[in-house]
Design a protein around this nucleic acid. Structure first.
Length: 578
DNA sequence: GCCGTTTTCGGCCCGACTGTTTTCAGTCG
């Protein structure tokens, strides 16, 4: 039983309770529990079987702890089953329509018998919505417009794609007359792997002029709300953008507030309340007097907290750590001296060894591992034993010509279904850098998959497990493994874990970066570049590492070439990373 | 439903905008 499945149960319970008009705080309790369970690194199932008390977790009390126990043991929740019986099938999909919340959904059902998106669409077309109390022609039109988007199930956008939209929009914002300050906030600023919408804060001298200028941005497909404080836009028909205006002395408090996360805000607000302050998006107040608000740092400081990097603001212990002056010194882009995973035209890359090396140098790196695919990945024209040897020779030849740069001759070797590697171990033993990855049979059960990885880890010739969960943020969930067992084996065998920086992977996920650190496994951040410009994905790896609390010392990339060469000497019978 | 160094009961973040009202409820973040 995965945590995500348990979290889904609580989210659904919460949604149904909301429609049924239950106590709003009970509704929120289920949401909080869902978030806690979804975000924690340990599996609830494992905690239970090792006798841990789930009630120690934030937002989990005796009732929800019992429910988790039931879900893990029986695979079902009688509470959810019972609640589902109170609503027609498909009813919850109504809540995905923007502007339609639980209250209106209930009214639509009670008054018009609307049970699904189809019913709602028909009722709009028949103009039956406009006659309901509290709703009118505009409501009807809005529903009709938003039903399409709800059907498309517009999920979250990859961080990279949100970055692209934001950067174009930011260029436009730079032309706003009287612009004094602007910043992205929200999950983009926290560098979450996916983004629901963009939040942008502005400080300008003339709001009307600024709004007029902003509204000329060509990608705006709709203006959903427009007021003195706030502008809600839809860009390219699929991305919501909130633009908010603040004055100079409010800006820091606003940035803090709108960067979130919501859970972080609540935790910080609680610190404020405990010390007799009031904190909102306009400032930190003692009574009616604003005591901080210009900058985020100022607000944190008055509250006795160290400044918390946006990537950490998920209420995973960062507020407590800030109060104890025990925050990690996070790894930074400047700490990254090299890249541990790249491909060339030898397999499915787009550029030559020389071109990749040159591109890496131009980006200020001191070393790059060339790690083309092995034979099992036929679609990428993977290499057999002979080609691996020949390719390594070619890499070393290029390396010999480079001053002050190290091109590591490596391979991304496949872990076959039974855990064996598809290149001979004596050949692998001669290489500078060996990544072992899973590219097939993703659906083995946890026991088999764990054994499969353990077998690869214990070969003694693997330096790193590539994209350990093989997840794909849009199309594929993670493989199922016993995380602690695998990570401990990595530690004991001197194998490190890759943090694959491809924006659709970001694998290790942040919570497992944190777990790796706790267990004592080193992390190698790697772009997995298939062409020169992919090397820039490193920044997504670094931000994910930061979200996982990693410090330079936790990350292999912080080693200089000299230090790395020392660490990579493979003594006969000994592992590398002890 | 959760939580507690003022509490085991009585709190639980709160402001902006819209669309419908004629002073406010619902939704959203």
């Amino acid at each position: 039983m995965e945590n995500a499945q348990i979290a889904d149960v609580f989210d659904e319970i919460s949604a149904i309770l909301q429609i049924l008009g239950e106590n709003a705080f009970r509704v929120r309790s289920y949401q909080n529990a869902a978030r806690t369970v979804r975000d924690m690194a340990d599996r609830a199932e494992d905690l239970l079987s090792s006798g841990e008390d789930l009630k120690k977790l934030p937002g989990i009390g005796s009732s929800i702890a019992e429910q988790i126990d039931e879900i893990v043991r029986s695979g079902t929740s009688h509470r959810l089953t019972e609640l589902r019986g109170k609503l027609p099938r498909g009813f919850l999909e109504l809540l995905r329509v923007r502007g339609l919340g639980p209250k209106k959904a209930k009214k639509l059902y009670d008054d018009l018998g609307i049970k699904s998106l189809d019913d709602l669409e028909q009722a709009c077309k028949d103009h039956r919505i406009r006659d309901l109390p509290g709703m009118g022609v505009k409501t009807e039109e809005k529903f009709l417009e938003n039903i399409g988007r709800a059907r498309e199930n517009v999920g979250r956008m990859l961080l990279r794609d949100a970055d692209a939209v934001f950067e174009a929009f930011a260029e436009h914002i730079e032309t706003v007359p009287g612009l004094q300050r602007f910043s992205a906030a929200g999950s983009r600023r926290r560098r979450r792997e996916t983004i629901g919408d963009l939040d942008i804060l502005l400080q300008v001298t003339d709001r009307d002029a600024a709004i007029n200028r902003i509204l000329t941005f060509p990608a705006i497909s709709e203006v959903e709300a427009q007021g003195k404080e706030k502008l809600t836009l839809i860009l390219n028909g699929n991305l919501n953008v909130d633009v908010r205006f603040f004055e100079a002395d409010e800006f820091g408090a606003a940035l803090l507030y709108f960067t979130g996360s919501k859970a972080h805000n609540i935790a910080v607000r609680k610190v404020a309340i405990d010390q007799g302050y009031k904190l909102n998006e306009y400032g930190l107040y003692k009574g009616d007097k604003r005591v901080a608000g210009n900058t985020e740092d100022e607000v944190y400081e008055v509250l006795g907290l160290d400044s918390i990097a946006p990537e950490l603001r998920e209420n995973r212990g960062e507020v407590e750590a800030a109060a104890k002056h025990a925050l990690p010194i996070l790894v930074d882009h400047n700490d990254i001296h090299g890249d541990f995973h790249s491909h060339t035209i030898e397999t499915d890359g787009k550029q030559s060894i020389e071109e990749m090396a040159q591109a890496a140098r131009m980006r200020g790196l001191d070393y790059l591992a060339i790690t083309d695919h092995s034979q099992a990945v036929t679609i990428a024209r993977g290499m057999d034993n002979k080609r691996v040897e020949k390719h390594a020779e070619a890499v070393r030849k290029v390396d010999a010509k480079l001053d002050d740069f190290w091109l590591l001759a490596g391979v991304e070797v496949d872990i076959l279904k039974d855990g064996s590697l598809d290149i001979d171990t004596d050949i692998l033993g001669e290489l500078d850098w060996v990544i072992a990855s899973i590219h097939s049979h993703f659906d083995l059960d946890e026991k088999e998959m764990t054994q499969r990885l353990l077998a690869a880890i214990e070969t003694g010739v693997v330096d790193c497990i590539g994209h350990p969960f093989t997840r794909h943020l849009v199309t594929r969930g993670p493989i199922s493994i016993d995380v602690d067992t695998v990570f401990q084996a990595c530690r004991d065998n001197g194998v490190c874990l890759e943090l694959n920086a491809q924006p659709e992977r970001l694998d290790l996920p942040d919570v497992y970066c944190h777990r790796a650190k706790e267990i004592g496994v080193k992390v190698a951040i790697a772009s997995d570049a298939h062409k020169a410009t992919d090397l820039d994905y490193m920044r997504y790896g670094v931000s994910t590492a930061r979200r996982g609390w990693l410090e330079p010392g936790d990350v292999l990339n912080s080693l200089s070439t000299k230090e790395l060469r020392k660490r990579l000497v493979r003594k006969p019978g000994a592992q590398r990373w002890r």
